[in-house]
Design a binder for these strands. Structure first.
Lengths: 143, 143
DNA sequence: CGTATTATTGTATAATTGTATCATTGATTG
DNA sequence: CAATCAATGATACAATTATACAATAATACG
């Protein structure tokens, strides 16, 4: 069994592309310590089969992480955790991830006809009212 | 201890295939005089074990060098330095090596969206500003 | 010695793994 | 509706590894 079997949960209904979902979740697993330096990730084909997607999509996620030097992909050999990000890096990655999420939120809101200002306002109110269950328990897989 | 133990440094993250890295570095060692006519190279398995790669990858590097007559591989016997390149040959090899590096640089820059002109400009500036530590001290091994 | 046996060395071929390129699809935009 | 673009898929490819093999050397034994 590979090290992150069942730990990647995709939401095929999300507008978030699945290659980003994969990349972000792997990033989080590293930051949580579930994946450590030197660990081998599943091959693109393994993971693709498990997630029932094309292996090129996994490859794209891996390439993204390779560019940030979080992992190392080696043709013919496999893919490995390359560096455990230091605090600064973690912060940067978190920031970047957040920004992507934020951008998507605004974009989606825009589709629904809301201005950024409106989207922000709604967000604020939501944050104040329902302060329960906003933490990160494991989510259910969707498809 | 074999004659080039620790003298081959691989970068598994490079897009340069490791069989080429090996071949080029052996070539350089011969040109530098670290390897002389008649010297035996480590067996494919020895070197593979040291570098933590498959011996077929070493074999491929050896085959490459065998084809240029720099070394002689003999099944069941081993691998030996075959001829020390004369000055003309050395010059040619150095030139070829540099061209390969240049090509690679441009290719990588291209992937990042830079035109050759931009890549060249950046290179120029870099060369002017930081003229320190551009020599060839031994590099750190990567994985 | 001579020969059989075993170990050592490089080689050939197929399987595995990531990559590059182009095609398809579905949504967005004008 | 056509054009366009991003995400995903299909296909062919390149690097590396796994496995079985062939040639040579080293050793054992008569």
């Amino acid at each position: 069994m590979n090290p992150l079997s069942g730990k990647i949960n995709l939401d095929f209904r999300s507008s978030e592309p699945i290659y980003l979902q994969i990349a972000q979740q792997i990033q989080q697993l590293v930051m949580k310590g579930d994946l450590k330096l030197g660990d081998q990730l599943p091959t693109v084909r393994e993971m693709a089969t498990e997630l029932r997607i094309n292996f090129n999509t996994v490859s794209r996620a891996y390439r993204l992480l390779d560019e940030t030097r979080l992992i190392s992909t080696q043709r013919g050999r496999g893919t490995y955790i390359w560096e455990e990000p230091d605090e600064a890096m973690k912060q940067k990655l978190r920031q970047k991830g957040l920004e992507e999420l934020a951008l998507r939120y605004l974009k989606e809101a825009g589709k629904l006809g809301y201005t950024p200002a409106e989207a922000i306002e709604t967000l604020k109110q939501l944050a104040q009212s329902g302060q329960t269950s906003l933490s990160d328990e494991d989510q259910q897989e969707e498809r």
